[in-house]
Design a protein around this nucleic acid. Structure first.
Lengths: 180, 180
DNA sequence: GCCGGGTGCGGCAAAATGCCGCATTCCATT
DNA sequence: AATGGAATGCGGCATTTTGCCGCACCCGGC
């Protein structure tokens, strides 16, 4: 289908979810990238060092070190690397941080391969290509809950207090949504 | 109180709301900045060109050109300028964009002078000091609703559709909260 | 005039929430 | 090991908030 393996741009995909990784990796390969996989920052770093990729897709929330660390490292290794940060739950703070550390784009999951590739594409000062869908209230709430929950290291009681909602209600909400 | 006028760092404050402008300007002057005001990007640009400020506070959503344009211009004029972008309704997409264009920080209103000054403070790669308050779900939802409602120019039916909630429910919510 | 779309509101069944209480479990101190 | 404090999971139940009708306007265009 595509040309030689060698002329395909290298892409490092880092995510701790295997299913997600394999699905996305296949999709990206179809689009002509030479994909290398890693499931953690620790695993990705040596790969990046020995062979700095041209593109990278990094999940933010993973076991071990935060994806932000990797973003910074990749950017330092080669500032031309185009890095897309993925996150289950978007947050302004981390988005700002990611970009400051060198990320090219910041996408909220679910993001499909096309969106990701599109995020790479741009010339320096592009327009606002981002997903920025009007988001339903429900999804918005869900993201917010998870964000706080994460901040609270999974402590449901504390999260409920912070969110100003009843612990029981939070519990019920959490139990209804498939954590992904 | 403070030293000579001349040794105060220059700060360009751009916002289209007069009340906001004067309140914030006074607060910033108290904190030792030599504040210059502008109420639009068009008005701010010449000021910036003739005298690039050391600091800048820019509202994102204003009449005329977007604050983003100004952010970019300021950054090009002097990449050392520390720019804080303010916005009524935080959005990931614009946050990312603003930072890519050279903003130092991105704060959601309401932000007080202290928060803004704090946002300037940082050395290159700071931690995550951002406003990012834990906000109750309720408030979050309320902000989101108003944002979309505004985008929809007050059209309740359209807003409800977009938010994926029933028109009746939206109506009831709107009638219960004092529009500010 | 007629029609499509928006708005405001009443009513009612269904679902979500708030608010108990209780049995466990986990942790840090004692 | 024991004890106290805090989290958790879950059942029940009264109260609210929804979803989902329907109906009566009001507009702006055809």
């Amino acid at each position: 289908m595509s040309g030689n393996i060698t002329d395909n741009p290298s892409l490092l995909l880092v995510d701790d979810n295997e299913t997600f990784r394999s699905v996305l990796s296949r999709a990206l390969e179809k689009r002509g990238f030479a994909v290398t996989l890693a499931e953690s920052v620790e695993q990705a770093l040596p790969l990046a060092r020995s062979n700095p990729p041209e593109y990278a897709v990094v999940d933010l929330k993973m076991e071990g070190a935060s994806g932000l660390v990797l973003v910074q490292a990749l950017h330092e290794l080669d500032s031309a690397t185009r890095i897309v940060v993925l996150t289950g739950y978007a947050s302004i703070a981390t988005a700002v941080e990611a970009v400051k550390l060198g990320a090219t784009q910041y996408l909220a999951k679910p993001a499909n391969a096309d969106e990701i590739v599109a995020a790479f594409g741009h010339n320096a000062n592009a327009d606002l290509p981002v997903g920025e869908r009007p988001a339903s209230v429900e999804r918005l709430e869900w993201e917010h809950i998870n964000r706080v929950l994460q901040e609270q290291q999974g402590n449901i009681s504390a999260t409920a207090r912070q969110l100003n909602m009843h612990r029981r209600t939070l519990q019920r909400k959490l139990s209804k949504k498939p954590l992904y």
